[in-house]
Design a protein around this nucleic acid. Structure first.
Length: 264
DNA sequence: ATGGTAGAGCTTCTA
């Protein structure tokens, strides 16, 4: 199975890029974040024509929004929490059929958390920490098996997940309150598949700010996008590929896709 | 220490 996760930053705007991605990489399953499209305006037909008639989506106006696309049928997983009681379209889950049996797939868009890394001063940062704690508690109470968790988790947990560990320690996405919580969530039953395939100290980034004039030259990236699997699936891990060249496509997202080939 | 850019939809918020 070939799976891609990508923060597309507007699904409707970047449908042509998604089409090219599908043509070049031929994924079986695609998880997108920041679709920024309300459900009634979701481009069902266009995506079906690209080979993905099986769609699960949860969107809202302007912000957030997640979707899972599949060439083969998806079974929606219901009964997952409404994280932080906000109904803000940051998680969707499905069961997908494989030759070796069903696999559970979680697609998350974790709150970015604003600029000030202090939950007292910054409600968005407080929300981010609460979201991480809720997710950790839920997976501890519902231990995952044969599961994949992907998404824009908006945290770069390891030293070599950022261009400068020292300079980013007080920058939201790499502060200890976030990285320790993300690691606790991971340890609620998952393995970091990206780092199994590409271990530290190799630098690994999936996001480069729009605010750098030349992203490649300055290379001030962060690994904000993740692919986790439960240990039972890890023997099937073949390759992880960060599709960095897409950052140079016309009108790119600030995130690039991460692709995994998994034998299931 | 600061400001730089992008998207959605409306003149601001979020990232």
């Amino acid at each position: 199975m070939r799976l891609i996760t990508w923060n597309i930053n507007s699904l409707r705007l970047r449908l042509p890029l998604l089409q090219r991605l599908i043509e070049e990489q031929a994924p079986d399953v695609i998880c997108l974040q920041e679709t920024k499209v309300p459900d009634p305006l979701y481009p069902r037909d266009a995506l079906a024509e690209l080979g993905f008639p099986h769609q699960l989506y949860r969107g809202m106006k302007s912000y957030n929004g997640v979707t899972i696309l599949s060439r083969t049928p998806l079974e929606p997983i219901t009964g997952t929490p409404d994280w932080c009681g906000r109904e803000d379209c940051r998680h969707v889950a499905a069961s997908i059929q494989t030759e070796t049996g069903p696999v559970t797939l979680h697609n998350f868009y974790v709150p970015a958390g604003g600029d000030i890394p202090d939950p007292q001063e910054n409600e968005k940062f407080a929300h981010k920490l609460a979201f991480l704690e809720e997710a950790t508690a839920w997976f501890r109470a519902n231990p995952p098996q044969r599961s994949i968790l992907v998404g824009d988790l908006n945290i770069a947990p390891l030293e070599h997940d950022v261009w400068s560990h020292r300079q980013l320690l007080k920058i939201v996405s790499h502060t200890p309150p976030e990285t320790t919580r993300l690691t606790e969530w991971l340890h609620a039953g998952f393995e970091d598949a990206m780092r199994k395939a590409i271990p530290e100290p190799e630098k690994l980034f999936t996001w480069w700010s729009y605010r750098n004039r030349d992203w490649k030259k300055s290379n001030r990236g962060r690994r904000l996008d993740h692919i986790w699997t439960t240990p039972d699936l890890l023997p099937g891990l073949k390759t992880i590929n960060v599709l960095s060249p897409m950052r140079d496509w016309t009108s790119p997202s600030d995130h690039v896709p991460v692709m995994m080939d998994l034998a299931v």
